[in-house]
Design a protein around this nucleic acid. Sequence first.
DNA 1: TATGAATGAGTCTTCATTCAT
DNA 2: TATGAATGAAGACTCATTCAT
Lengths: 211, 211, 211, 211
Amino acid sequence: MSNQHISFEEPLTRGHKKKARTKQLLIDTALSIYADIGVNALTLQDLAEKANVSNGTIYNYFKTRDEVLEAVGMTLANDFSDAVTQASANIHSGIQRVAIGIRMFINKAIQDKDWAKALINVIHLDDRMRSTVANNIVNDLELAKKEGSIHFKDRHIAVTFIMSATIGALISITEGHVIEDHDVLLTEMILIGLGAEPQQAYAIAQLPLPV
Amino acid sequence: MSNQHISFEEPLTRGHKKKARTKQLLIDTALSIYADIGVNALTLQDLAEKANVSNGTIYNYFKTRDEVLEAVGMTLANDFSDAVTQASANIHSGIQRVAIGIRMFINKAIQDKDWAKALINVIHLDDRMRSTVANNIVNDLELAKKEGSIHFKDRHIAVTFIMSATIGALISITEGHVIEDHDVLLTEMILIGLGAEPQQAYAIAQLPLPV
Amino acid sequence: MSNQHISFEEPLTRGHKKKARTKQLLIDTALSIYADIGVNALTLQDLAEKANVSNGTIYNYFKTRDEVLEAVGMTLANDFSDAVTQASANIHSGIQRVAIGIRMFINKAIQDKDWAKALINVIHLDDRMRSTVANNIVNDLELAKKEGSIHFKDRHIAVTFIMSATIGALISITEGHVIEDHDVLLTEMILIGLGAEPQQAYAIAQLPLPV
Amino acid sequence: MSNQHISFEEPLTRGHKKKARTKQLLIDTALSIYADIGVNALTLQDLAEKANVSNGTIYNYFKTRDEVLEAVGMTLANDFSDAVTQASANIHSGIQRVAIGIRMFINKAIQDKDWAKALINVIHLDDRMRSTVANNIVNDLELAKKEGSIHFKDRHIAVTFIMSATIGALISITEGHVIEDHDVLLTEMILIGLGAEPQQAYAIAQLPLPV
DNA sequence: TATGAATGAGTCTTCATTCAT
DNA sequence: TATGAATGAAGACTCATTCAT
């Protein structure tokens, strides 16, 4: 949940552990470029320069430019997945799990705007990534429905509703619109929109996040 | 509200005045290319070819590639604005006007998926367009708040919520996920999310749309 | 039959006829590069420079590098075909037509070593070209067999024999080994090898070539 | 005469001395790549991979890529030389030795098409190799002339004639055109072309090859 | 205005070669 | 000797832009 993905500036002097660190370096560097100028504008020459690496080196790790972009997308998707899954590990209420996911996204975006920018860029361009994220939501959503805490007519619409409202908030945040309790407010709106009782929605949206 | 933006295939003989017909042709053609391959992938060579025009001709109407993209964005934004404004002309309830806007977007997307694809592409890449759309919502939203039919703590969050949820639905639709009463369902979710009374939200979301 | 293919040096001031002259210019220039350094070593940058043209211009006429090579090969093949066909137009004896073909090849190579070098390069790399040439021989060969002037067990072997012996001689010539009556001597060897009566072979190989 | 040159697949456990085994492995592997894709297309990366060796290893045995190609060419040339020399060791008739050389080439090509393909590739690109082969023929040819069994006006033309007709046949064979007694038929054509008495040519071309 | 040939800077990609381990 | 990561020069190809006709 920290800044580890955008850490390419630190001179690789630390561990001397493996040379395959270069691959991670490239991905991290690419991520930071995404944040700056977007996915499309990334050129391999720029990536090589910013990573202090020769252009040819990139091709020791990726066969094509697209493979680089894909690797970055995967990294983002997996990080998301891992962080949220881990945080919700001990939570068995569907509506709570949904709330935690939304709030973690928002809070991470506030902490690390570069991460958010990169994520937004990738999500707009990569269908697979959207599916990955959607799959992570759908189970919690169905669980919440069974619990009776929310209700919706079409699952796909509900998932889309959550994702798009969250991404929308992320865009706002990267543009500088951050307010107090952003995560709580948005979560309330989404849960109520999904048919939750306002009282319950308020309560759940404000629960302390798991450590 | 019809297919007019993607009408470049028709042999440009109809009503177009001889002058500047070419400019509109170029914009329409660009729009259809957006829908197919996105904004970034549009090349002027492709545009010229698809518009049955020499590449040099484009430069008689636009100074740079960016100017083409801008013109297309303006067209999309204005069309939206005009259509919704016109439809809501005689509606004086804020919440109703918001509902009409959302539903018109959804229904137009269902009717004209190419328009929706182009719009999505543009909105993701063009900050100005987002603002244009947002400005059209904000007045109705404030009006609804004054009427007491909805309530929200932060205006910007509310606007973003509406827009992003709507765009999310548009994306779903372009991907083929269309269900019955899509517009009504989404409008309900959004209005309730904004704090509307469920009963009222249901009622308003189902009102017949103005002709 | 003259140097027309390697005429790229002359400044395109003559006819002002067509701009599509550029395509021919490129082919001619490529041909001369073949002669110098071979097909494989041809780079488009080199071609552009030697043709006094921007690298991008090449792509106005050919989609890929391979298309350039193919066009040059076609030019060579067609030139051969046309020249020999024209020369043998009024000759109805199969063995005479075969002899004329061989001798024209040899003589043209002696006159224009660049042409020969380019031809050799292309023939080694382009299967289609070999077939094209072979097809031009096979009819005359069958005709000669029917006349009883030569005889062979396998047509394919016979055609290959003629072609490879001729190309071999071309290679020798490009390497500087030219002797008097090279065309006549080689033709004799080939015709006799194909079973012609030595007396007849001598006679036919020495007939004056048609103008 | 067996498949020894293309034997890189076998797990290099047999008789190879531990030393310099790798060098031979590289040459053999290169040979097989020649057959597949030609000399020019051979890349050291590909070679290293197919030889199950690190790319850096190649540079322990060869200073440059060209040195690799040269070594392969030498191997091919020497193998030819050795095999034919050995086979003709007890044959003292010039025309017979010429016939044996031609036929051995053809038969080896039929047995081992990869060898033939590699040889063709090399011979087209390497002048030195052509000379090496030519030198092996020229003595036998002069001997045959002294014996009166053949006669030619220009030695170089005669050598070229033999070589090119043989290589031509090799190309045919690699393309799948193999007929019965290919070696005998071609040898007859060549010998007759060189002025041998047809009866003698037939007889000599059919003599059993030395073991 | 319309045309389309020409331009050339910018990108991706390949591959021989080097070198620290 | 063997390895394989790193290098960087070189080449193919794209595409916005210019300009003479």
